[in-house]
Every structure is written in structure tokens, then in C-alpha cells.
Nucleic acid binder design. Sequence first.
RNA 1: AGGGGCGUCGUCAAGCGGUAAGACACAUGGUUUUGGUCCAUGCAUUCGGGGGUUCGAAUCCUCCCGCCCCUGCCA
Length: 587
Amino acid sequence: MEDKDAAEEGKEKSLDFIRTVIAQDNETGKHAGRVATRFPPEPNGYLHIGHAKSICLNFGIAREQEKGTCNLRFDDTNPAKEDVEYVDSIMEDVRWMGFKWDELHYASDYFERLYEFAVELIKARKAYVCDLSPEEVRAYRGTLKEPGKNSPYRDRSPEENLDLFTRMRAGEFADGSRVLRAKIDMAAPNLILRDPTLYRIRRAHHHRTGDAWLIYPMYDFTHCLSDSLEGITHSICTLEFENNRALYDWVLDNVSAPCHPQQLEFARLNLTYTVLSKRKLIQLVENGLVNGWDDPRMPTISGLRRRGYSAGAVRNFCEKIGVAKRASTVDMALLEFCVREDLNETAPRVMGVLNPLKVVITNYPEGESEELDCPLHPTDPSVGGRALPFSGELYIEQEDFMEDPPKKFFRLSPGKEVRLRYAYFITCTDVIKDENGQVTELRCTYDPATKGGDAPDGRKVKATLHWVSAPHACTAEVRLYEHLFTVENPNDVEEGKEFTDYINPNSLQILRDCKVEPLLANAAPGYQCQFERMGYFCVDSVNPETGTVVFNRTVTLRDQWTKIQKTQPAPKSQPKQDNKPKKNKGN
RNA sequence: AGGGGCGUCGUCAAGCGGUAAGACACAUGGUUUUGGUCCAUGCAUUCGGGGGUUCGAAUCCUCCCGCCCCUGCCA
């Protein structure tokens, strides 16, 4: 053991390309050992798992450096799309992820300074007010293959530009009638550099500056200068901004900026069976295709939280996926692995029956009951235990009984003996059906000698079932979730279809008559546990008026049995008896 | 007269001239009072393709191919 650890220590953990740059900068003393990052969301939507990757990168880097800092900065330069609801949710999500920002900033706090930088550019003949309409600007820009042509307003004098820009700010011109543009190169092969817009006129109420401004700076002008003003050393963003780096550098090179951060671009996260673009996420919410941003099916941080994911699991996931420049799509199975890994360690094991089937123990003393002392975790005694009531009337899972079982079915069937976890061995003696042939109840006998779950005579059973004592059971609502989409890549849309056409109709299944052990009657919202053999669940944070506890299934357990079933020849038809017909899970 | 990026196992991802890490997934055994966990084993003779340099190439050179991003007064 010890030498193994020692061997491991010798191995250098390989750094991703961003941390490699930072390590080099530290070595050369480029920033005197200082490392300053920032997480810069625009408050125009809720954060999702893709942002979690960026959060872990930026805050993570700051945390692992001796002199590292990470700011939270809202990139709020487009009042038309932004809202305080989003800034609040973003702060909550970053905190929940387990990070603390060093400084909190809003790009809008820099508006006055940004204006001064723009004036600087105008005075240096590097920016001009352009009267072209948006359509004309587009036409003048040229195409991917052909150069653009200069705006007729390109050579206005600094005096005239200053006058016009001042009057833009003062509100003398209509929205969209003029813009301030950088004077760079209309023939630049990088279109971003063809005299990009720096300021536009917008009579919109800003969530922070109110009506103080009528002109708003564009991202490319704002972002680099905000970074500079905050003394950011490494400005980390996603790949699609690679083209913008030329402008990022141009602005900082042509203005008296305090410092020049290095922009580094990494590949954004894509996940199978979901969408991760704000536009699409907003569409799902606004069209009522999901129940809000925190719908547990959503890949949002708030959705994952409500689903029962722990911050640690999400952080772990972000570490496992790595950081690189290659466009990639991570398998959802990895995210699921990360929650299971986390919850397996910590979650108390309890009993919950999703689709109850009544079992009467015919030789158990009528009306009696007893309490079994059971651990809450199979390997970690510190999780504690609880008293579990047992009686002659129980519920077991419908799928744990088959009247005519296939070869590899180990669970209960007529004449078969199984173990009830932590309780007794029982043997099925009778099957009771209703007039439709549906199984409504099982009659079983129990062996009093097997109390606790072991037979003194050493006989074995092939299966252990979870169960709940009927008179003691608490009725609960359980929401089962599956992938939001039926296809791996919902962005890959067939001709004439939309991504919403691939929404999984079974992504949410509500079970209203589940039976859980009494311990759970007063479980607090957010409480995470494992229903033995069924999966990890958590108490929904939004409780209904009805008073019944609502559980969200975070993730199923790994399941050999369904795999075996899939590879088995179809079993002889069985009368279905679910209270809610269950679709074949998985696709 | 287009420019900027990226191609290593099914999916992520190390590797940076010395002979293909790791993780998920998958498969097979073992343990087990969860068909869970855990443990063991297997899983790229080959790095988009062709040439070249070299004793030696995923790593260097070269040509080709494929994919992503850029023509918002969005970020």
C-alpha cells in the first residue's frame, strides 16, 4: 500500500494547456507570481453544466495558486436581454458549486471609464461615428472571400466624431441611427477586424444603470477593458472567441489600458442526450416544454441541484472531463457515474417501494409487528441506523414478482423463497388475482428462524428484496427522470425537424402511490438517500400543497438485471400489473 | 484574398523524438443480506491519410483529407 502511494507521488499530474501556460508564466515571473482569473457570465439565463466547467476552471485555477484570485463579473452590456433574476441565480449557483469570488463586478460599473477609452480612440483617429444603417454596414463588410469597403463616414475628423459621440450619449439620435466603430481594416481576412462596432444607441432600461445610458458598449470593447481594469492575468473563454482575440488585443494595444491580459480559449462542453445552448434552454423554459429553469431534467446547475446532484459530484465531473481545444461531446454516462460515485459514499440506504404489490405473511401473528434494527449504510457505520417496522402485511416491488419467470429471474415467484432485506426469508404460496387476471396480492409464509436475514441451517436464497410494512408505510410521490432527449445529439436535426421534436416523452414519470418507510415521513427538502436496489433519490426542494413527500430520482443504480433481460429472448407474456404502465426503460 | 482552430480506443483525455497513461462505457470472472458497492482480468502493434527526415516519429518537415468557428448595432 505505502510503496504504491509513494510510486504514485512520483508521477507528475499532467497539466492542461491553460495551466501549462500559467505554470510557465509563474516560472518566468511574468506577473510576479500573481494569477488572476474571472468568471464572466452574461445575466441573460441560468447557468448550466457547461458553465460549471468554466467555473471550475477559473475558480479552480485561482484556488490552486499561491497568489490566485478569481472575480465574478457580470457581462451586462445588453440591457434588452438581461435581468436581475439571472444575476441572483448565478450568484447562488456559483456559491453552491463551492466557490467564493474575490471581487464582485459588473461591466456596467465600468461604463463611464469605457466611455473615456472610446474618446481616447476617437482622438487618436482610431474610431469614428458611422451613420450607415445596419443593412448598409452588412453590405459594406464584404464576405468571407471578398474584402469590404470603407464606410463613407470613415474619415470624419476627431472633432466631428467627438461631437457626434457626445450627442449620441446625450440622446440626440434615434436608436440604431449611428454607431461608434473602430477604424481598423475593411479588408482584414478576419471579419471581426472590419471596423467592428464599439457602441450602439439603445433606449433600454438597464437592470443596474437604469436609464442613465442611451449608448451601450459592445462585448469586444467591454470585455478586454474590464479584464484589464481588474488586473486579470489570464482571460479564459471558449473557442468561439478565438477570432475575437485579435480585437481583444487591438483594443488593449490602442488605448491606455492598465495591463494586457492573455486570452486563452478552451472547448466548451457538450453532453449527450441534452442541449447546452442558452438559446435552446430558454426555448424549453418559455415554451413550457419543461417546468422552469430548475426542472430536474434540465442540465442547469439549479436543475441538477434539484435533481439531487451534489456540488462535489459536479466538480468531480468537471475535473474528469479535462480541458482541451478539441470540440467534444462527453457521454452523459460519465456525469451519472460521478453522482453515483459520490452518493454511494454518503447516501443513507432506506426502503422505498415504487410500484407496490401487497404481500400477506400468512403465518405471522395477526395484528402484530416488531422493530428491526438496521444500518443505514452497508459499509459506513457512522451513517447510523434506524428501527424498521415489520409486520404481516407488506409491500414489495411489483417487478420483483413474476408468476412465470424466465430462467435468470432470481426474485419471487410461486414456490420460491427470497430474503426480505434485514428481515426474514419468505416463500410465496399463493397468487391472488382480480377478475382481469391481474395479480393484486401475494400470500407468503415466513421462516421465523431467519430473522435478520440469515438462515441458521445455512440455506441460501438468490435474491434479497426491499419491502415496506404496509400499516407503517408512508405514501409518497416519486418522480422518475430519464434523458430529456431520445437522441444522443438533439442538435443534429433532421430536415424539417426541430430539436424539440426529439424530447423524450418519458423524461418525466410521476408515481403517486409509492410506499416508503416511516423514517422518511418528515425528511427535509434536499434530503438525499438511496432507495435500496432502486436508485438515489432526494426530497424535492419544492414541496406540493398536498402534504405528501415528493422524491426525485437522481439516478438509477447500475443494473445488471435489465441488461440480462435485454439479451434474453422475450419472456412469455405476463399480465401487466403496474399501477402506471412502465415503458421499457432505456432506449 | 478568405481567416482562425482542431483531428490519439465507442466517449473524454495524457503524450511534446526513445517505442501508446488514465477515466467512462463495454466484456468476463470473484466477493456480496442491494442483480448495488468492492476486487481481478480483457479492451488502440497504432495515433485522419500519403510521402519525407531519423538508428528510432503520435511527436519534426511536406502535401492531402475531414470537422468546428467567423459576414449581430448578441455574448
